[in-house]
């Protein structure tokens, strides 16, 4: 499942970008760190024999979603709003403790489940054509529901974003 050196370099970049997003005081910097994180994960998808998912990751996540984020940040002038933590310092320690506890719990599960590793399967055909066939053979109903979800969210955004009539018009 990929070259160890490539994996370590990509993992290091991904974790560093994630930490950069977490600690940046400027929201624009956070968004750009997140773009770097998404791009790194897209490269990992390509390493994992999922080139089409990698391209979707770049276009949809790093392209569309993050542009939306940056647009809202700049629209609101929110790049300097909100400190790293609230006024209470105990929240910071509690959050750190909870995050470490999360990693420990997952780590225990990972250590216990380590025995099921039966070696990697042979690479499968993951071309866009094969993915499309699988999508429309086994997931037609979820696909239709996805369409309804997108329409609903689109209407919701239009309703939310509309200015109230007669209010600071």
């Amino acid at each position: 499942m990929g070259n160890p050196i490539v994996f370590f370099i990509l993992a290091a970049i991904a974790i560093a970008a994630a930490m950069g997003m977490l600690t940046s005081r400027n929201a624009v910097h956070s968004a750009l760190f997140l773009v770097l994180n998404f791009a790194t994960i897209a490269v990992l998808y390509i390493v994992l024999n999922a080139p089409f998912i990698g391209m979707v990751q770049i276009t949809v996540y790093a392209g569309a979603i993050m542009v939306l984020f940056l647009f809202v940040i700049m629209l609101l002038g929110a790049d300097k709003l909100g400190g790293v933590v609230g006024e209470d310092k105990w929240q910071r320690y509690l959050a750190g403790f909870l995050a470490v506890a999360l990693v420990v719990v997952f780590g225990i599960v990972l250590a216990q489940g380590g025995g099921v590793d039966t070696g990697t399967a042979t690479a499968i055909d993951s071309s866009p054509a094969a993915l499309g066939m699988r999508l429309f053979e086994g997931y037609v109903f979820p696909f239709e529901v996805t369409g309804v979800l997108l329409l609903t969210s689109m209407i919701g955004v239009v309703v939310l974003g509309r200015k109230k009539r007669g209010k600071d018009a």
């Binding site: 997003m21 977490l22 968004a31 790293v84 933590v85 750190g96 990693v103």
Partner: peptide
Amino acid sequence: IILFAIGALGVLLRRNAIIIFM
């Protein structure tokens, strides 16, 4: 796991709603 934990930490720590979404 590490990326998920960093994301969870961001939700818990940050006070800017946009950063929480990220």
